[in-house]
């Protein structure tokens, strides 16, 4: 599709058990840029190259996990249009007033059939990436932390991922990119969907508990940077789940690791471009190991069980 409608993942609000510890870690190890705090005490971050005010919000809580995941849409007319489509699809929506999140316009919030809160919004302050809009220099990767390019996608776990897919495809114009089938050959264990020409903007795995987060992912530009990220993680005693390796699904290179509250994050590089005319790719249940970890060709203990 031409880039109208839903543009891209815009923000994720993540629950943390110790806010100050997490702020220090997201700043120094992840290399995100602190963008202030609001009256509720939530801490805001963006990557260096993101132009909008923030993409990660941390909220102090007594349990880990993700409060909501937001997508930016083209403009306010699109926001109103998509809200009407959601309501017509039988989805209850709620308007969160402008300014509830710092420098962010009104948001339309709804729950997916899997229980996850998703938001759409059209406006967030363009603070720029520091390079300016006239004759910009390259942002040379220097300074502390992993410093990813952008917050890229998320993987969520919940029961009815079929109804999720229908909502994303029919209402929000996402496209199916890849899927894993169970042994029956018909039921999806997992699906990867895009609203753009990326290999995925959101993915979901069938799971018995609703509203679970598997990971929020950050993009890196090269495999070398993935290796550099792993070095930074080890040097800082960050808990690594798996990798560096490659996914068969999307073919991106990856590290799964955990933030200081046990929320899984990913640093991700590559992945092919997908256009809506392209045939989706199917993985059969017996090759799911290679789909997730292309080199190991088997799942690890944590992939299907460890979520927040």
């Amino acid at each position: 599709m031409a880039m109208t409608g839903v543009l891209r993942p815009g923000h994720a609000q993540i629950r943390v058990l110790d806010l100050e510890e997490s702020v220090a870690w997201y700043t120094n190890v992840m290399g995100l840029v602190p963008m202030g705090r609001d009256v509720q005490g939530r801490a805001y971050f963006k990557t260096r190259q993101e132009r909008d005010h923030h993409s990660i919000i941390l909220r102090q809580a007594d349990r880990a996990g993700m409060d909501f995941f937001g997508f930016k849409v083209l403009d306010n007319a699109t926001l109103n249009h998509l809200e009407k489509k959601l309501v017509a699809h039988g989805v209850r929506t709620e308007r969160i007033p402008a300014g509830d999140l710092l420098e962010t316009g009104e948001r339309v919030r709804f729950n997916l059939p899997t229980g996850h809160a998703i938001e759409l919004y059209a406006e967030k302050k363009d603070v720029g990436n520091g390079m300016g809009y006239v004759n910009p220099d390259v942002d040379v990767l220097e300074g502390k932390g992993i410093a990813p390019t952008r917050m890229d996608h998320c993987l969520i776990y919940g029961p009815d991922i079929d109804a999720n897919r229908e909502l994303f495809e029919k209402v929000l114009d996402f496209t199916l990119v890849e899927r894993v089938k169970l042994e029956d050959g018909t039921t999806d264990l997992a699906t990867w969907l895009t609203c753009s020409a990326k290999a995925h903007d959101i993915a979901m795995v069938r799971h018995n508990e609703p509203d679970k987060m598997h990971h929020v992912s950050f993009r890196l530009d090269t495999w070398e940077q993935v290796l550099r990220a792993a070095d930074i993680m080890s040097k800082n005693r960050t808990s690594i789940d798996f990798g560096p390796t490659r996914h068969g699904i999307t073919q991106g290179t990856t590290i799964y690791f955990f933030d200081p509250s046990g929320n899984r994050l990913e640093t991700f590089c590559g992945g092919y471009d997908h256009y809506p005319d392209m045939h989706p790719i199917t993985w059969t249940w017996d090759e799911v190991g290679a789909g997730i970890y292309y080199h190991a060709r088997k799942l690890n203990d944590t992939f299907l069980t460890v979520v927040t």
């Binding site: 058990l17 349990r63 880990a64 460890v306």
Partner: peptide, 30 residues
């Protein structure tokens, strides 16, 4: 069982039957 190693996912839950330890904040979900 090993999961996040950061007190968030709950898979490593144990019952200590003898001895002393220090502890850090852990998820109330678990």
């Amino acid at each position: 069982p090993v999961g996040c190693r950061q007190g968030g996912c709950g898979v490593c839950k144990v019952r200590v039957t003898a001895g002393s330890y220090t502890k850090r904040v852990m998820s109330r979900e678990h």
